[in-house]
Write a protein that binds this DNA or RNA. Structure first.
Lengths: 338, 338
DNA sequence: GTGAAAGCGCTAACAC
DNA sequence: GTGTTAGCGCTTTCAC
């Protein structure tokens, strides 16, 4: 059988308390005793049972990351950073996928698995501000990612969506484009990123004294390459003249770029394109895609810090916090000035 | 405090054993009793403590997925399928990243976290057949993914690498190409996928009576877009004539395609390209990339079944099993016949 | 068909 | 500085 703390205690001729003390770096142990325990641990190849420790201490060392899905490169890259950062702090990451479905999100955050983790990083897509009172009742420490839920009862970390979209739009204006498509509007999303990014687009236009043309606001329901491609196909059929695209994420930008190029449009000569997210792939497409770097590293770093402070109680009496990360406009080939 | 099984028992006026029986669908319970318990559970909003259950039963309902990293679309899409399939069986997935580093892989599979999970899906990159005896000593159920470790002491699921590469190569020969680059060889990888895919390439050539030109075997160390791009850049500088590329994964194919197009080569007119993995992105690049679909769904389904059978003991006395999945050649624009 | 009691392996009071 | 003991919340013999 796998050795327990009792086996170690017996071999080292100490009590289990002393073994436990050694394992947990309790300071006041005689060096000789400590060494005996360490030797016993080594000879038995003892490893603490984390389940038992979790039951007793109430801390499992597990955090849950709830995201829509890993097929989306944005979330895969986010998960990559979360796993890296969590592991560096001795935490392990459980990943659950919601598909952006409200029911699934609910069953995940309300289900029994969640009391097995010390904290939750939750990128909500289906839940909204209407569910705030429900969120408030959740006792497991939780940090919200992304902007679907604002001013909620939980700590919240996101990028500056409005400013980011405004900067993206201004970037296109700066390279001489005037007929800019806002690509990725989604009424159904309500107050989500789509709404905020559209707001940023509008601010940039009005600051430049350009009247908004409703024909240039193009819906994309579901932000995937496929939906981006379809929406662009339909838009091109309408024959509306345009010379720039502000895509609300990289994937739909990529899907749209493919369709435009197929249709004979040259990028950036005929149409300049900028995306959102700085997904790795955007550095290798033809042309490379200009985009907004949302500061993912910072998002994860702050979110994990917030979570840790809620877990260890050091932020126990603070109200819900909000952190907006810095972003950067990354100019690449798709917005080269002509 | 959160209610325990005792609170439910008290409210339902039964013993905790009966509550436990109800929770675990024990058949012989009087319906009236069962209903009282169910009501008590509902009014208290009781949820079983999975950590306690795990300690007592020895099953946590957690499986660990160890992969090199989620930035690689192949592994992200694999993880997506694993999470979906596991959740459908009531299992949660812990994801750990090894970066393909042997030391890290060792500390992951040997560390204390692993005795917190019921089983491990392990896509090894750093470990090799030399570590077989070490693997044999691991008691936690484990299924190996990918082909780094063959004939090891654990169940193993992978695609038919040699056959897949042979089919990819034959596909290029079939569309009239003769000077085919084997793109992605990697001596350091030893017996890994690179080795097997190169073997398949060679078989196709010799079956077609074409002599292998060592100049056309191009190393790519690390299978990323960036390394694919760099290797192709260096290869082009050497001025070796070629008209087709068998890339050993999609990412290096994409990186290479970008570099070739930049250099003025037309795909597929001048160079036909086929990849490996059928990553989502390959459907939207310009041109779309022909590739080998490795049968990811099947890989996950079988791996999870093997793992389940090792966990519940139903495959306890079977020797390590090996499963090779079917693959498909997906023809897209990058290999259109001229 | 249901209850009493033990104990999974650990941490944390509290002794000494 | 180290040992004794209780108990985290659950499942599981074993009675009845």
């Amino acid at each position: 059988m796998t050795p327990t703390i009792h086996d170690v205690a017996r071999l080292a001729e100490v009590s289990i308390k002393t073994v436990s003390n050694v394992m947990n770096d309790y300071p006041h142990i005689r060096p000789a005793t400590k060494q005996r325990v360490l030797d016993a641990i080594a000879t038995l190849d003892y490893q603490p049972n984390l389940t038992a420790r979790g039951l007793r201490s109430g801390k499992t060392g597990l955090v849950s990351l709830i995201i829509p899905d890993l097929r989306n490169a944005y979330f895969a890259e986010l998960a990559d950073i979360v796993v890296r950062a969590a592991e560096a702090q001795g935490l392990s990451v459980m990943i659950a996928q919601s598909n952006g479905d409200r029911e699934r999100e609910l069953s995940l955050i309300l289900g029994p698995r969640m009391q097995m983790v010390d904290g939750i990083l939750f990128s909500a897509l289906g839940l909204s501000a209407a569910d705030n009172d429900l969120l408030a009742r959740i006792k497991t420490p939780m940090v919200l990612l992304g902007e679907r839920i604002l001013d909620g009862p939980k700590d919240h970390v996101t990028m500056r969506n409005v400013d980011g979209a405004q900067a993206a739009t201004e970037h296109l204006l700066g390279v001489g484009r005037r007929r800019l498509v806002a690509f990725g509007a989604d009424e159904a999303q309500g107050t989500g990123s789509a709404h905020l990014r559209l707001e940023g687009y509008r601010r940039a236009l009005s600051a430049a004294g350009i009247a908004e043309d409703p024909e240039l606001v193009v819906d994309v329901v579901g932000w995937y390459r496929s939906t981006g491609a379809e929406s662009m196909r339909r838009f091109l059929e309408r024959g509306v003249p345009f010379d720039g695209v502000v895509a609300f994420n990289d994937l739909i930008a990529l899907g749209a770029m493919r369709v435009m190029q197929e249709a004979g449009l040259r990028i950036p000569a005929d149409v300049a394109v900028i995306g959102f997210d700085d997904v790795d792939e955007t550095r290798y497409t033809l042309p490379t895609l200009s985009t907004i770097d949302p500061g993912r590293e910072e998002i994860v770093e702050v979110a994990l810090r917030y979570l840790r402070e809620r877990i260890d109680g050091s932020a126990a009496d603070l109200p819900a916090r909000d952190h907006l990360t810095a972003f950067r406009v990354l100019q690449r080939e798709s917005t080269t000035p002509r």
